[in-house]
Amino acid sequence: MKRELHLTVNGVSYHRLIDTHRTLLEVIRDEIGLTGTKNGCGQGECGACTVLLDGEPVNSCMVLAHEADGHDVVTIEGLADGAVLHPVQRAFVETGAIQCGFCTPGMVLSAKALLDRNPDPTRQEILDGLKGNLCRCTGYVKIIEAVQAASCLLDEEEAS
């Protein structure tokens, strides 16, 4: 069964006829063609498919596309401002928090959402905020550093 779907993704509005059993992840990847959002498990366990729905991180594999109808989605492709990386992205690059990169888009968006809600998180708050994103490569050490660094970069940005 198809149904009309309105979505704003990274500021661009889309209007499509979409099967009701499609997930937000499938629509983002297959219909809109943004493949930065990854499918890691399809069960909400790994967080590779994390996107921001009205600014909040969700597993897009567990959201029916039509449940997001009329709402605003930001994917990893929508984070940088042209060629200028978002401070969270910059922090991930500079601290070496990236290895294979498959978890990175979700990890970065979870980190951004965490810092939006809590600009100066403690170590424990970082762990709580990112425990829905699995990474098999880095051992997470540099990811924690990246979030701490991003918090500082955002502070600096605020100050200037």
């Binding site: 493949t35 930065g36 990854k38 492709e77 992205q89 690059v93 070496g96 990236i98 990175t104």
Partner: peptide, 19 residues
């Protein structure tokens, strides 16, 4: 030094075989 593929990976540009 940062990895040479860090920017494509952190922006979602990097294409994996599944993509």
């Amino acid at each position: 030094l940062p990895r040479i593929d860090a920017v494509p990976k952190v922006t979602g540009e990097a294409r994996y075989t599944v993509d």
